[in-house]
Design a protein around this nucleic acid. Structure first.
Lengths: 74, 74
DNA sequence: GCCCATTTGTACGTATGTATG
DNA sequence: GCATACATACGTACAAATGGG
């Protein structure tokens, strides 16, 4: 079996999930913005949004238009 | 090699630079607002801001929040 | 001090185009 | 052909600063 490289958006999603599950990002706390993550990681906004999409589908975060993305309340 | 179409934000940046270098937009003079340029050119605000960003990086204009964008003083 | 319009700043939603492997 | 990734470009909404009345 071949693993293959982990996509950037998956790496970021994994990283953020770890932050949430460890509690470094608490419930209702604001996740860094797409722009911030884009700049900090040197990746495109689309890639950041893809990571957010994964986290939303996993029920880990909630995104509010014009406001930001937040760790889902318990 | 293929050139490809010139992006809208680049076209607007080029146009404004020409205005500045020709003196039709004098130093310290206010550049039309983002909303004005958006409406006059039928483009989105994001595109106007992208053009301004290029001009700022080129040192041609200075932007002040709540005020506007001005041709840089000599 | 307080509203209000204007303007820039930030942020998210969506779509399409381009390039690479 | 498909997945990945970045670029371009449209839109919306809200925050923050400015200045006039």
């Amino acid at each position: 079996m071949e693993e293959g490289p982990v996509p950037l958006y998956q790496q970021l999603a994994d990283l953020l999930r770890a932050e949430i599950e460890s509690g470094r990002l608490a419930p209702n706390q604001k996740v860094p913005s797409e722009l911030t993550l884009q700049q900090e990681h040197g990746i495109s906004r689309v890639t950041v949004r893809h990571a957010f999409e994964i986290l939303r589908e996993a029920g880990l975060v909630v995104t509010v238009r014009g406001k930001g993305t937040y760790v889902r309340p318990e």
